[in-house]
Design a protein around this nucleic acid. Structure first.
Lengths: 122, 122
DNA sequence: CAGCATCCTTTCTGATACTG
DNA sequence: CAGTATCAGAAAGGATGCTG
């Protein structure tokens, strides 16, 4: 039974890193964390401008997910028109160095990877 | 024009870490890298047993992707029945510490994240 | 043994229109 | 301003059967 195997969900039980990547391994989370890590706070539309190619929907969805995980704060000001500010939490800050380390590795090895990919056939 | 914005592909140009996550941020790559990082070499079916809940297709697809990026080696022995061995490359090894650091962070903060998620409403 | 091919389901992302 | 709701397309992942 192939189905039986899947139920063990081996990867998340024995591989905690997957639990993180399930959260921040998506298309936008890391970028948002990096931006919020570089600023004190930011409003929704500021983020939307900063990340030129994100859709409003995905910005909302991603921010909500990061908020749920306790990586960013969402502060609503009861004004008209509404103002909502986002900032990174302490938990988020503690994750940042690891993201940046990964980013450094990426910068340093991007070329190697790309060359490898171009040479690769079949 | 919403479409115009996307073409800039801001995230990959200005955010190299995304280029890495586009590759290893999938469901299985990290796990495979961790396993191959802990062993000298491994055959296809060994990996398939080690990762109990991966499908044969995804194991093939993921290994090919890692190979294309130069993170793992694929060595084919011209025998019958065929034998194919996989091992991690030097490039892959250089990435490993960062994955493990992320993994450590995950272990240490899993509970906090889960609590945050449970408390989160809408 | 180590796959490949095909079909199918699920999940992710985006476009668009609308709103307190 | 900062969203929500809905729909549609793309991509990822899985089940199954077949093969050198």
């Amino acid at each position: 039974m192939e189905e039986e195997k899947r139920k063990k969900n081996w990867n998340n039980v024995n591989c905690p890193v997957r639990t993180v990547l399930d959260r921040i391994g998506d298309k936008w989370s890391i970028l948002i964390l990096l931006i919020l890590g570089d600023t004190e706070k930011m409003r929704f539309n500021q983020l939307n401008k900063e990340i030129e190619d994100i859709s409003q929907k995905m910005l909302t969805v991603t921010l909500r997910s990061l908020e749920a995980d306790g990586l960013v704060n969402r502060i609503i000001f009861p004004e008209v028109p509404p103002r909502v500010e986002y900032n990174i939490t302490e938990l988020g800050k503690s994750l940042l160095p690891h993201i940046k380390a990964l980013s450094e590795w990426a910068k340093n090895n991007l070329e190697t990877i790309q060359e490898s990919r171009e040479k690769y056939v079949s």
